[in-house]
Computed example of a mutant assay.
Amino acid sequence: MRVRRSRTVSVPIECPPRAVYEFVVKPENLPLWATAFCRSVRQSGDEWIVETPDGPMTIEFVRTNDLGVLDHYVSPAPGVQVFNPMRVVPNADGSEVIFTLFQPPEVSDERFAGDAALVERDLRTLKRVLEQR
């Protein structure tokens, strides 16, 4: 059995979990908070296309649910899917947003650390956006 190195990043948000979930699950909100990843987003048929620093990618969230599961798949190329586990869970009167990254074999430790830093930056932006609403 083989496992990949992982890193979990979380941020507390002073906002109810349902409100956080309903904001994050909408791909059209990505440019408001995932600024390191998303330059813009558009819908094309049933797909959402995200313009990223690495080029266009499709993004697909798992089915809407009442559990706070925001897992999503990003496809940087046809036939390639990257799984991104993400959750929003209650934290006292607010929320905790949790995002786990897995290091692909072809990604250096330095790049992986940089990717984790960008995810943390985006989650902090999400916190700021939601707490200012």
Rank of each mutant, 00 (worst) to 15 (best):
N65Y: 09
V119L: 07
E28L: 09
V20Q: 06
R42V: 11
I98M: 05
P56K: 06
V11I: 14
L118C: 04
D54N: 12
A113V: 02
G94R: 12
V97F: 07
S44Q: 13
E14M: 11
L101Y: 06
R2Y: 13
D115Q: 07
G94H: 10
K26D: 11
E28T: 03
V80Q: 15
T8Q: 15
V69G: 05
P12G: 14
V69K: 11
T100D: 07
H72L: 12
S108G: 05
Y21I: 10
V9H: 12
V24T: 09
E51G: 06
D109M: 00
H72Y: 15
L101N: 03
T100G: 07
D54T: 04
E110S: 11
F83M: 07
V62M: 06
R2H: 15
L118K: 06
A117N: 05
E47W: 08
D46K: 09
I13K: 10
C38N: 06
Y21E: 12
R39Q: 13
P16C: 15
C15E: 15
N29W: 02
V20C: 14
P17N: 05
V20L: 13
E96Y: 00
V69Q: 10
D93W: 00
C15F: 11
P16R: 14
T125Y: 01
M1R: 04
L32Q: 12
G55S: 07
D54C: 07
P90S: 10
P31R: 07
V25Y: 12
G114C: 03
D71L: 08
L126N: 03
P105Q: 01
E28D: 10
S95K: 04
N84F: 09
F61T: 09
I98G: 02
R5E: 15
E22G: 11
V11P: 13
F102P: 00
W33G: 01
A113M: 02
P17D: 09
N65M: 12
D71C: 09
V97P: 06
G55L: 08
D122V: 02
T58M: 12
P90N: 07
V11W: 10
L32P: 00
E14W: 07
P78F: 13
E14S: 15
P27H: 09
V41K: 14
P31M: 10
R4H: 12
R111Q: 09
N65W: 08
A92W: 00
R7P: 08
T8S: 15
M57D: 00
G94T: 07
V9R: 12
A117W: 01
T100C: 07
L101K: 04
E47A: 13
P105R: 03
T125Q: 04
E96D: 08
E60H: 13
Q103H: 01
V82K: 08
L101Q: 04
V41L: 13
S44Y: 02
A19I: 11
I13N: 06
P53Q: 03
P76V: 01
F112A: 09
F99V: 01
L30Y: 08
A36E: 01
F23N: 08
F99W: 09
T8H: 14
M57Y: 05
S40T: 01
V41E: 13
F37N: 02
V74G: 09
V69I: 13
